[in-house]
């Protein structure tokens, strides 16, 4: 077992992966279940599980609202002996023009509280967002078992 070192951060190794498509509101329920199963499998505590699933809920809602759905890649990953769940939300919607602005508390273009992205970031250990206007948005989050 080797872990690659790159610019100070460890690159997680994928253990299992599964893709869930989300195109309508009800699809959020099976997604939550899939995420929960992964979290339980690696013995994640209840609070961290709840934070992870809540974060997934927030991101799926964004995907449905702004991009009419997309695909979620659910992975269990490990770095060294630490395990975690990694979720990748990929859509081909309109994209986000100003990511920095979108990451500020209280900012929202849709009809919500504006807690979406910054709130979600607080719930997980790693949060990465990439977006190109016109071609879509990819959000990646990781929640570690110990973290």
């Amino acid at each position: 077992m080797t872990t690659l070192q790159k610019s100070g951060t460890m690159i997680p190794i994928t253990i299992t992966k599964e893709t869930v498509l989300v195109v309508k509101e009800q699809d959020v329920v099976p997604l939550r279940n899939t995420v929960k199963q992964c979290a339980v499998k690696i013995k994640m505590g209840l609070v961290n599980q709840t934070k992870l699933i809540t974060a997934a809920s927030e991101l799926v809602r964004n995907m449905l609202r702004y991009a009419k759905g997309g695909a979620v890649l659910v992975e269990t990953v490990s770095v060294g002996r630490n395990q975690g769940v990694k979720l990748t939300f990929q859509d081909d919607g309109p994209g986000i023009a100003d990511i920095n602005q979108a990451m500020q508390d209280g900012f929202s273009t849709g009809n919500s509280l504006g807690l979406g992205l910054p709130g979600t970031k607080r719930l997980v250990n790693e949060f990465d967002i990439k977006s190109t206007v016109g071609s879509g948005t990819t959000v990646t989050i990781i929640k570690w078992v110990n973290g």
Binding site: L46, V47, Q49, T50, K51, T54, E58, D105, L113, L115, P118, G119, T120, R122, L123
Partner: peptide, 14 residues
Amino acid sequence: IQPAVAITLVELGL
């Protein structure tokens, strides 16, 4: 409200 839900809501800023 379950403890884990309460903690998550607060962390979420809600």
